[in-house]
Amino acid sequence: METGKPFDELLAEQGAGMKLAERMRRLRDLPPLPETVIRILALRQHEEVNARDLIDIVEQDPVLAAQLISYANSAFFTHHSPVTAIDDAVLRVVGVSPALELALGLSVGRVLHISTDGVLGARRLWRHATYSAALMQQLAGQIPAAKRPDPGTAYLCGLLHDIGLFVLGYLFPQEHQALSQLVQRHPDVALNRLEYNLMGVSHGELGQMAMRYWDMPQMLATVARHHHNTDYDGEHETLIGLLNLVEALLSSQGLTDTPVLELDEALLERLGLEEENVILIADEVIQAGDSLEQLARQLCA
């Protein structure tokens, strides 16, 4: 931690904590979800998603179509000919269910525009999100079948788990900037401690409230709220445990908002994963980073 003024004194200078009533009132200032998101959410309610319906939605959103095609051309898929059409991306490469979740995450991600630069700026947040999503998707497929989450759902959770930091930057830009400065000055202090002392609320809570305000799936609200909770024990514990594992794997690469974390052997055992295989998969994701960096840049645009 930086020497000089005591930590608590520095926090006091940044301003008083945010009151619950103020937080709830400002949620009304969130932008409405775009039509693309509403249509995808409606489609997601179907027991079996019609591929043609999804393709029709994506084709009417040129930005989303370009992002989905870009992802289909990434190193994660072992195809030989370039993907140039949404039909190919959905049906031949990505798959209908994963493409649906990817389209939902990318569409929600474009709703909140915040400052690009800084340790909590959009550039770093989307970089973390795209790596997290890819690693979540790859690792989900290795979990034993009895508790294995859908890889597309795992991807969606990885992409949107930090949505609360975007909510903070959008609704409370001054507090977002102050928090970013504190993170830079005190990299060894847990982010949630900095948040509670500065604002009286964590980005997890803000993310949960935004997901509820938008009437997003309960799973996403729970993941947004508890993704840093290593003791979470509930309906979505596999997804949240996987996010904790991903956080540890990416921390050594400087791709998280946390200090370097050790892999938790008990967590690996609960998920049914082998450490050697997990590290190998993480290396493969990092090696395929060019396509993830491109997707992160698109989300910042």
Rank of each mutant, 00 (worst) to 15 (best):
A282R: 05
A266M: 11
E22S: 15
L255D: 01
I38L: 14
E22M: 12
M216F: 11
D257R: 04
L220Y: 01
V108Y: 00
Q177H: 12
A178T: 10
H226P: 00
Y196N: 09
H46T: 14
V278I: 04
G15H: 09
Q287C: 10
A134V: 03
C157R: 02
V94D: 07
I40V: 13
E274T: 06
S115M: 11
V278N: 02
S74F: 08
I57F: 04
L160C: 08
A221E: 03
H80M: 10
G15T: 13
A146N: 15
S252N: 10
R23W: 07
R297F: 10
G164K: 04
G109E: 01
L41F: 07
I286F: 09
D215F: 02
V94F: 08
V90S: 07
M199L: 06
N50D: 15
L261T: 03
E175G: 08
A248H: 01
N277G: 06
H227L: 07
V90H: 07
D264K: 01
E293F: 11
L179Q: 08
S115G: 15
Q294R: 10
M24R: 14
L245C: 03
L120M: 15
H113F: 08
H227K: 03
P144L: 06
A42D: 15
M136L: 06
R28H: 14
H176Q: 12
V260S: 11
M136I: 11
L250G: 01
H228I: 00
L295N: 12
R270Q: 08
A89V: 15
A140R: 00
H46F: 08
E48Y: 09
R23S: 11
T230Y: 10
E13S: 11
L292Q: 08
M1D: 06
E269N: 11
N50T: 13
A72D: 04
R52H: 06
W126R: 00
D283R: 13
L139F: 00
H226Q: 10
V278L: 06
T230E: 12
R39D: 14
R297Y: 10
Y213C: 05
A129Q: 05
L245T: 02
H226I: 02
L20V: 10
R148S: 13
L160F: 01
L255T: 03
R52K: 08
G289V: 04
D231K: 10
E275L: 09
N50H: 14
L11P: 02
K19M: 11
L10E: 15
K5I: 12
S74V: 03
P98L: 04
V223Q: 01
A288F: 00
D188T: 13
I143F: 02
Y170D: 10
F76N: 10
L250H: 01
V285M: 05
Y71D: 13
P34C: 07
G15I: 08
M211L: 12
L100H: 01
A190W: 06
W214T: 02
D88N: 12
K147R: 14
R124G: 00
L220I: 07
V167N: 00
L68Y: 09
V49F: 02
L30F: 07
A145M: 11
E48A: 14
Q142G: 01
L156T: 04
E195K: 04
M209I: 07
L194G: 04
L125T: 06
N192S: 13
Q218A: 13
R185M: 13
Y155P: 00
G4A: 01
G272K: 05
T116K: 15
D8I: 09
I114S: 02
G158M: 01
L33T: 12
A65R: 15
L295S: 13
A89H: 14
L10I: 15
L179N: 06
L206G: 13
